[in-house]
Amino acid sequence: MRKTHIGTALFFIPVALICVFWLIPANTVPPTSADDISPRFVPTIAMAVIGFYSLILLIREWRAPKPEDGELDEEFGAEATGVDARVLLNTLILLVVSALTWLGMNYIGFEPTMTVLIAVVMYYVGARNWLTIGLCAVIAPIVLSLCTFHFFSTELPGFWK
């Protein structure tokens, strides 16, 4: 976790600086009424808090690294492993798959894209029973799409629709 904290802090300190000194002023407009607080006020405070606490996180990890005592995260338990090379690789995979899914759903259509997605995901996590994969991948998107159309009168994207 120590590396993760240092990494996060090193990421958020510049982000906070950029936001406070450039992004927020450049993308907001000063208030029209003298009694009003500025539209910049709350976003700037939020970013300043992030920057300030990143600094604290950094300093603390730098000066007094606590020994890894094996205590689990309160909210996520063993899931919070810290961000390492493996997690970063997963994030990259996630980005690519998300982008492809979005493009596929938008330009080709919901059903074909999701058929591919389900099959890929099931294979990826270790399913090797082709009948199960095939049935899930073909039936689930079509059934869900039909339900969406009939119960919610919402048409999911598809180039043929």
């Binding site: 259509g109 991948a137 073909v138 043929w160």
Partner: peptide, 22 residues
């Protein structure tokens, strides 16, 4: 894989059929 391809093919056929009907 073979089955994936078949699935895609099936969906495409269904899609074309639907389009034709409309």
């Amino acid at each position: 894989t073979r089955l994936d391809r078949r699935a895609v093919l099936g969906a495409t056929v269904a899609a074309v059929a639907l389009m034709g009907g409309m």
